[in-house]
């Protein structure tokens, strides 16, 4: 084989992806566990949105919109199925391999393929008719307008 992912000198680079990943993955999982506990200790997704192979999401709020982002490199945006039902956003789709290649031709496989599915509860009531989705550089951005009654209002305090 003529190309080897370069690892640090301390590690045996001939031991392949397994050696690199087990400790790293464990660490990442632990990091994530802590991160989740501190950012979201009670679970923001009451419907347990994480089934199947779920893309990782960013969920943000601006004054007028709810913005959901997912890193989904190499997908066909036409094959992404987006649904907004009530306050539940569902993203569904499939990530296909670039081209059908024979298995034996692969020296190294790290990227994930297959169907993905994720449902997420949105924080405020949204208008399902005002959803925009854009796919650029492998990142899917979904912008959903908040309902007028869900928008933040500034209440002025009158002095008596």
């Amino acid at each position: 084989m003529n190309i080897i992912p370069w690892l640090s000198k301390r590690e045996d680079r001939r031991s392949g992806p397994g050696a690199e990943s087990s400790i790293t993955r464990f660490r990442d999982e632990m990091d994530h566990l802590f991160e989740r506990f501190f950012t979201d200790p009670f679970g923001m997704e009451p419907f347990g949105g994480r089934f199947a192979f779920g893309p990782r999401l960013d969920l943000a709020e601006s004054d007028n919109d709810v913005i959901v982002k997912a890193e989904l490199p190499g997908i066909d945006p036409k094959e992404v199925d987006l649904r907004v039902e009530g306050n539940l956003l569902t993203i569904r789709g499939e990530k296909k391999q670039e081209k059908e290649e024979k298995r034996r031709d692969y020296h190294y496989v790290e990227r994930q393929y297959g169907s993905f599915h994720r449902s997420v509860q949105l924080p405020t009531s949204v208008d399902p008719d005002k959803v925009e989705a854009a796919y650029k550089d492998g990142v899917l951005t979904i912008t959903i307008a908040k309902r007028p009654d869900a928008k933040a209002k500034r209440i002025s305090v009158k002095s008596a």
Binding site: E11, T24, R25, E29, H32, R50, R56, Q112, F116
Partner: peptide
């Protein structure tokens, strides 16, 4: 479950000194 999500990105610091 965390394991159902896409693998988390790996920080380069865990593998090599970039």
């Amino acid at each position: 479950m965390v394991s159902d999500l896409v693998n988390e990105k790996r920080d380069t610091a865990t593998v090599t000194r970039a």
